[in-house]
Amino acid sequence: MDKHNKLFIKGMVCNRCISLLNKELSRLGLQVQSITLGEVTLAENQPAINDTLLKTMLQENGFDLLRDKNELLTLQIKQLVEEGIKTQAETGTPVKFSKLISQGLNKSYDSLSTFFSYSAGVTLEKYIILRRIDKVKELLVYTDKTLTDIAYELGYSSIAHLSRQLKEVSGFNATHYKKIRKEKLAAAANNGDIAL
């Protein structure tokens, strides 16, 4: 086996996927060197991987191996979008996704955008909006951040722009997600669980 054996995994969408896959790969006797959304690097000197067991485990957990170069490119674009959103959330600095993606893959943004639309069935711009709104919903439900804080962190030009986009994409406004947070906190308090 190569010193850095990489597996490209389809269907990983969040940190829980990373945690689950790390546990399942360990259960198969594989040592994970690093794991990110869509990509696993196994430690050196691994025993031979039983492809059937690996594929079965992945499919049972809603994942699959990527072997096609077009699927891999789509995954790489999605990873760069996630990286951009994470950078915005951590630094509060707006990210120019077209520059991030084109530089990250060393290809023109226009060609990557056209490819992504064909491959993923949604425009790259729409995908970025959907992923940013998913992050907004997550922050509204699992943190006590205000819409103002979130708009700043995720690089929105204004709170009004974020509010419009949230309503347009999800069908709900920020108040709806804050209500979900209150309900979760109340349920956790009633059950003696640790608060969100």
Rank of each mutant, 00 (worst) to 15 (best):
G84S: 09
Y156M: 03
G84C: 09
Y142K: 09
F97C: 10
S170K: 08
L140T: 05
K137T: 13
Y118C: 11
K96P: 12
I159P: 00
A89S: 08
L105P: 12
G104Q: 07
Q103P: 10
I85R: 05
Q165M: 15
P94F: 01
Y127H: 12
E168G: 04
L124N: 05
F172V: 07
K145W: 05
E138F: 03
L154I: 06
T91W: 03
A120C: 10
V169T: 14
Y109G: 11
V141E: 00
Q88C: 07
G121N: 08
S170A: 08
E90I: 12
I129Y: 04
V136T: 04
G171W: 05
E168C: 07
E168M: 14
F172Y: 13
N106L: 13
I150S: 00
G121T: 14
E138C: 03
I150W: 01
R131L: 15
N106Q: 15
V95K: 00
L100G: 04
E153S: 09
T87S: 04
S108E: 15
D134H: 05
I159N: 06
A160I: 11
L166A: 06
S113K: 11
A89P: 02
F116W: 08
V136C: 00
T87P: 00
Q103S: 15
T146I: 08
I150C: 00
Y156L: 01
S157L: 08
S108L: 11
S108Q: 12
D110W: 11
A151P: 00
L147R: 01
S98P: 09
T146M: 01
Q103T: 15
S170Q: 08
V141P: 00
K107C: 08
G92E: 01
V169Y: 00
F116C: 07
K167Q: 14
I85S: 02
L139Y: 00
E168W: 10
Y109Q: 13
S98N: 14
R131K: 14
R164G: 06
L105Q: 11
K107M: 14
T93A: 02
I159R: 07
L147T: 11
Y152M: 09
Y109R: 14
S158Y: 05
S113W: 11
F172G: 02
R131P: 05
G121A: 11
L130C: 08
K145V: 11
V95Y: 02
Y152C: 06
Q165H: 09
V136P: 02
S111E: 10
L166F: 02
R164M: 14
S111F: 03
R131C: 13
V141Y: 00
I150P: 03
N106I: 15
A120S: 10
R164L: 13
Q103W: 05
S102L: 12
K167M: 09
S119T: 09
N106G: 13
L139G: 03
I129K: 05
S111M: 10
F115D: 04
I150A: 01
R164Y: 12
G84Y: 08
K86P: 03
K126W: 12
T146A: 03
E125C: 12
K126L: 15
G171S: 11
K135W: 10
F115M: 07
H161P: 03
G171A: 12
R131H: 10
I159Y: 06
K126G: 08
S157T: 13
L105T: 12
T91I: 06
S98K: 13
S117T: 15
G104D: 04
K167D: 06
F116S: 04
S111Y: 03
E168F: 10
D149G: 01
E125K: 13
